[in-house]
Design a protein around this nucleic acid. Structure first.
Lengths: 221, 221
DNA sequence: TAACATTTGTGAAGGATTTCACAATCGTGT
DNA sequence: ACACGATTGTGAAATCCTTCACAAATGTTA
């Protein structure tokens, strides 16, 4: 839950997450040359309800035209503004093992304006080498390099055992936004935004669902 | 929301997701040789409230002892049962590009009982090769190979453009649980469980938070 | 220009989830 | 054997989120 300063609005986390979905759909619709789109169509494409779509958008303004719907390109631009996607964010990746490497090659990030500008690792064999055109730096210089490169978002892709130490340094460097792939709950000060990407969690949810399907020998919703 | 058959309980998605967190903490506590743990401590370690922890657990039974707390190993075992982690699940990975490769090497999965048994790809150069000891199969034989290997969970790590076609085949093969890494909303029948891993979404949330931090020139919660 | 079909924007209702608050219960110490 | 401190389990209250339902507004057609 992020409360915008000035006490104007309370935007729920779910709303913001759905904005991402709308943005994604709008990109597709734009490619499909739609001029306008109704809340009904938008909802259908992301398995939501029309009312939900309208309510979400209404928190930020009124972007539609009654009787017509929403102008696709314009709405996409607006949501982009809201989410801060109308600019490039400088991202640092820490840890270029399994997951880290995958992230470097993930074009989706760059397309959305997230540019991995520096990569850190502690493996001497990797330091100095090039990963898809990005130099791998020594994590020894973390704080300094983060500052010098004007990094705004840090992605943690190191083993859980060392993640907290690294995050402590990241916080010291003044970073306010962290995306964590290590499977643990990192401690950060209240003014630092932390998001966790927990792949096991989703698998475990599926496991739970399948188990209940079997045990229940019957229905599930 | 999964309703257990028999109309006994309604367990919310958030509760199940938190069970994963409890399970993770309990594993750590077990290693740290804790005998018991209070809801307060459990909550602290995952930034939740004690009441939340107790309520979540109460949906499944009463595992604690008043005045004492919860027995660590026992509770871990119980949650494992609930989540279906007390067994091995046969998983197939489709697409062994950037993200797919990372998943193959991700030991966390195996540790939790998710064993990648088959890998599929459509790239002739990859088919037949070995990825960390797992053979890469031709996606042409998808349906048959899924059945022959008794696959229960499928992980989609292919480009968004082809994901829906592949999922249609996966569903035809009788699979009831899918974890999707492709950035789109897949259509599946209502009896198939689908979870999405959307990395852009989390980055966009951070982007939103940072933007508001800056625009609001002030407080955020 | 008027009637109509459509779709937004939104207060209010409804539903779901979280937190509160406290009785019940346990282990421990005396 | 009893009193005490601690902590669970859980209805009830509070909060948060979603859906409903409809007035308001638009484009279109005749």
């Amino acid at each position: 839950m992020v409360a915008v300063a000035g006490g104007r609005k309370k935007i729920s986390e779910s709303t913001i997450r759905r904005l991402s979905l709308y943005y994604r759909v709008l990109s597709v619709l734009e490619k499909e040359n739609y001029q306008t789109v109704s809340s009904r169509e938008l909802a259908k494409r992301e398995k939501l309800t029309p009312a939900q779509v309208r309510k979400d958008l209404s928190f930020f303004g009124s972007f539609g035209t009654r009787g017509l719907g929403y102008p696709v390109s314009e709405l996409k631009k607006q949501i982009g503004e809201i989410l801060g996607l109308n600019r490039v964010w400088n991202v640092a990746l820490i840890g270029v093992g399994n997951i880290g490497s995958a992230l470097v090659g993930y074009k989706e990030f760059l397309r959305q304006g997230f540019r991995i500008k520096v990569i850190f690792d502690n493996d001497q064999r990797k330091i100095g080498s090039n990963h898809k055109g990005i130099k791998v730096s020594d994590i020894q210089n973390l704080e300094q390099d983060l500052r010098e490169n004007n990094i705004e978002i840090v992605v943690i892709a190191v083993p859980a055992t060392v993640a907290q130490y690294i995050v402590d340094d990241v916080v010291k460097a003044g970073i306010k936004a962290i995306l964590n792939f290590a499977p643990l709950n990192l401690k950060v000060p209240p003014d630092v935004f932390l998001r966790n990407e927990n792949m096991s969690m989703e698998l475990e949810y599926l496991s739970f669902a399948l188990k209940n399907l079997q045990d229940g020998k019957g229905t599930i919703k």
